[in-house]
Simulated assay, not measured.
Amino acid sequence: MDNARNEHHWQAIAQGYDLEPGPINLENGYFGRMSRAVLEQYQEHVAFINRSNSVYVRQRFEQGANVEIRRQLAELIGADPEAIAFTRNATEALQSLIRNYNRLQPGDQVLISDLEYDTVKGAMRWLAGHRGVEVIEIPHTHPATFNSLVQTYRDTFTQYPRLKLMALTHVTHRTGLVMPVEAIATAAREHDIDVILDGAHALGQIEFNLAELGIQFAGFNLHKWIGAPLTLGFLYIAPERLADIDPDMGEFHYPATDVRARTSYSTPNFPALMTLPWVLEEHRALGGAAAKGARVRYLRDLWVGQVRTLPGIEVLTPDDPRLYCAITAFKFVGRDQQVMTQRLLQDYNLFSTTRVGASFGTCIRVTPGLATSTADINVLVRAITELNTG
């Protein structure tokens, strides 16, 4: 944590990112920036692939670099390289897993919560029409605690004995709530319920090992907290569970024994993939998820600690260190949150975003990034304090 507070250290790192003039960006949850060094590598790879076309890809990338990149990604999450398949993003990975999960029968139940990503909710609801299953959706109590979250799932598993599959988001995109994945997955196994984990916001800012979490199916982004170019994600299927996910729409380019058959075969963004070794080396050099996560949590704590007790402000993300990361959501009580988001931008030059869909209604999401300074956070604190009384 001491290094997380070292402003000189992190502002030196911030100098490696090019920032467009304009508002202070506190919406780093959409996607992350590439560093200048990564961007230069990416641009070189774009030019190279444009020159070499399919010659390099067919002769070298598919049999060489591709294998090494999968090995490095597997090391990142403590997995077998043969359990990983590239996708364009976490959404594509999760949709493939949900669509091709083959253990459902008509009358079975599947589970989502109000905090799941909307496309994940949509994919689970799609199962109702195509597999004849019943979708159970639960709201999470607010404010959430570690025990309340686990107990909500335990109660749900008991109440709905026909549950066979559930979606679970590691870091919820609406509020940044970090779910107690290991405890929930353990409870799910006791009821023979499979978990598909949305790890989009977890990878790169939270240290975890999928085997230790007890997760067999997951989807991830590489362009949020890892620092890769856009259009990169991957899915994970535990090797012993591969047969429970069908090849995607009869995919035939890879054998049924290959995890890569579980997502659509298409021409990927080769320059982006070729940049990944550089991205992962930079991630490790910065100290990995431990150092990056500690820094953005420190920035989060700076503003939350000063506004949580203000009358008229409701911080929606708990302070239990097990349950939060960089992302935190709040409300101006009794105000139109979209209007207040515009006031933050117009009056204080602070760019944030609103999130909807949770049981507590609309909220304002604040997400610092590696280029965010404590001075930026001070502007946010002043803005919230003044707007709260004005």
Rank of each mutant, 00 (worst) to 15 (best):
V133C: 11
R308V: 13
I237E: 00
I98M: 09
S148R: 12
Q43I: 02
D246E: 14
T367D: 09
H201V: 00
A4K: 03
E137P: 03
A375T: 13
T172Q: 13
L286Y: 13
V67P: 00
I215F: 10
Q346F: 03
H223L: 02
D319K: 07
N349G: 09
P180M: 04
R103H: 12
N147F: 05
N50Q: 14
G214N: 04
V304D: 04
W278C: 09
G214Y: 07
V379R: 15
F31V: 10
N50A: 14
E386P: 00
Q306H: 12
G390F: 06
G107K: 08
Q205L: 12
D118T: 11
I112D: 05
A202I: 04
L286M: 14
Y324S: 07
M1H: 11
H201E: 10
G287T: 02
E82L: 01
A261N: 11
M274Y: 06
E20Q: 13
T389H: 12
D118Q: 10
P23A: 13
N349L: 07
E190W: 07
L230A: 14
T158W: 05
F270C: 02
Y153T: 03
Y236G: 01
N89C: 11
N349Y: 07
N66R: 15
A228P: 08
E20N: 10
D258V: 01
R365A: 14
D319Q: 12
E282A: 06
Q105C: 05
A272N: 03
T328I: 03
T354Q: 03
Y101M: 08
R382M: 05
G176N: 06
T119W: 06
M179N: 12
R99K: 12
A85Q: 02
N66W: 14
K164M: 01
T141A: 14
T367E: 09
R154I: 06
R125C: 07
P143T: 11
A144E: 13
V304T: 15
N6V: 02
N349C: 08
T231P: 00
G122I: 03
Y348H: 12
Y42R: 04
Q342G: 14
A83W: 06
P229L: 06
P106S: 08
H9V: 00
R300I: 09
N25I: 12
R365T: 15
V150A: 12
L280A: 03
Q59L: 09
E68L: 08
A187K: 06
Q95F: 10
A285W: 04
V296Q: 07
G22N: 07
G305M: 02
Y348D: 02
R88Y: 11
A37P: 00
T372I: 01
F220V: 08
A371P: 00
I98W: 10
R365Y: 01
A12F: 01
Q205V: 15
A238L: 01
